[in-house]
Amino acid sequence: MSAGPLVGYSSSGSEDEAEDEARTRPATGGCRRGQSPVPSQRFPVPDSVLNMFPSTEERPEDDSAKHGGRVRTFPHERGNWATHVYLPYEARDEFLELLDMLLPHAQTYVPQLVRMEAFHLSLSQSVVLRHHWILPFVQALKDRMASFHRLESQPKVA
């Protein structure tokens, strides 16, 4: 806060002194005579308000153990959504038996391999979408896929 005089008087009409007076006179903020000026000092923001939202510097913890062993291929950024297009796959007993047989052999080369709970066939790589792009993206995908016949797996009868 500046320690300027409350009232500045000019002894002459020179422009230099008028400029000095304007610099040292406290701003009235357009107040009328008899009203007190609005204080230029701001009140401190309470800690409860400051702690309501996490800092923009904080990044979510990337713990692959919490996500089925998946590893992020690009850094997280607030407002971005990792998106991919896929077809779900319902694993039959034959597939699961083959997986149980192959997994131990594969783990000798890549120890962090684990069996997933659900399976899918990826039709795209992961891409980043901003939040406001999600609905237009889904609609465009639906429009493009509408002309294709729906594929449904039929159980084989032996």
Rank of each mutant, 00 (worst) to 15 (best):
R32W: 03
A82I: 01
N80M: 07
M116Q: 08
T28E: 06
L99P: 00
G30Q: 04
T83A: 05
L99C: 10
R33Q: 06
T56D: 10
R70S: 12
D100I: 09
V85N: 00
H84S: 04
R33Y: 08
F43I: 02
E94S: 08
T83E: 01
R33W: 07
P88Y: 08
R23K: 08
P75K: 09
E57T: 09
R42A: 14
A22Q: 13
E61H: 10
F74W: 08
V38N: 13
E58Q: 09
L102P: 02
A106F: 06
P60F: 03
V85R: 01
H76L: 15
Q112W: 11
V110Q: 03
A65M: 06
F95A: 13
V71D: 12
P54K: 07
L87H: 03
V45R: 14
S36M: 06
P75N: 11
A91Y: 01
T73K: 12
P88A: 14
L102V: 13
P37T: 00
T24Y: 09
F95R: 08
C31V: 04
A91V: 07
V110H: 05
M101S: 13
L113R: 05
V85P: 00
R115A: 15
A91Q: 04
E94T: 04
A27Q: 05
P104M: 05
V85Q: 00
